[in-house]
């Protein structure tokens, strides 16, 4: 039995086609955010995904801090998200596209999941597999939010999605959703 699922993220040109032999892994999170459609393009990427192969590093804030303070001339795009956050899931393809499009421009996207730890195995890892996320995904697990949220940015109320874009000491914080264009525009400012 072979099930073919096509995720067409809104206006994105990318169509991810996941061919899964055996059981179709259900994707409740995505059904509301992506259009399942027939494969008319004939583009087929046959990929085998396995949740066991997903490497998920989990940090408390102290361990995570190093991702916000690198000074290696690279442009870092740090996106705080969660599988349960619909606007976050909606904008993920834009971050994925950015990571691919600007890979040779010294830009790196890091997706910081704020999913509940007890759902890492049952929700987060399957999500990473099903959506074939190529950007680096790490998990931040630190309950003392009032201690660490202001350290990320003093103006952050704590709602997600939220994103930091920085290069060395030049850092910008966004408590908002992005379109691909607005995201790319921010990166282009660093590349001028």
């Amino acid at each position: 039995m072979i099930d073919i699922v096509i995720f067409n993220f809104n206006h994105m040109k990318y169509i991810y086609i996941i061919v899964l032999a055996g059981f179709l892994i259900s994707c409740k999170q995505n059904k509301s955010n992506s259009n399942l459609s027939e494969n008319k393009e004939g583009i087929v990427e046959n990929m085998k995904f396995s949740e066991d192969s997903v490497q998920l590093d989990i940090y408390d804030f102290n361990g995570f801090k190093k991702f916000l303070t690198k000074k290696d001339d690279k442009i870092y795009v740090i996106n705080f998200w969660a599988t349960w956050c619909a606007p976050c899931v909606k904008e993920l393809p834009y971050f994925e596209k950015l990571n691919t499009q600007f890979a040779d421009k010294n830009v790196e996207v890091i997706l910081v999941s704020l999913d509940f730890p007890h759902l890492y195995e049952s929700k987060l890892k399957p999500f990473i597999v099903e959506n074939h996320l190529k950007s680096k995904v790490i998990a931040l697990d630190d309950v003392d939010m009032n201690a660490w949220i202001p350290q990320v940015n003093k103006d952050w109320s704590g709602s997600i999605p939220a994103t930091i874009i920085y290069k060395n000491d030049d850092s910008k914080f966004f408590e908002q959703s992005f379109t691909y264009e607005s995201l790319e525009n921010e990166i282009l400012k660093y590349l001028k």
């Binding site: 704020l114 939010m145 009032n146 949220i149 202001p150 704590g158 709602s159 997600i160």
Partner: peptide, 28 residues
Amino acid sequence: YVEDAVDALLKGETVKQTETKAIGCSIK
């Protein structure tokens, strides 16, 4: 935080920690 704030107000005291941050779902 909330209980401490209300307890302080009930006692006629000033609230010590007036603002805190937490992760939440953005308002749709």
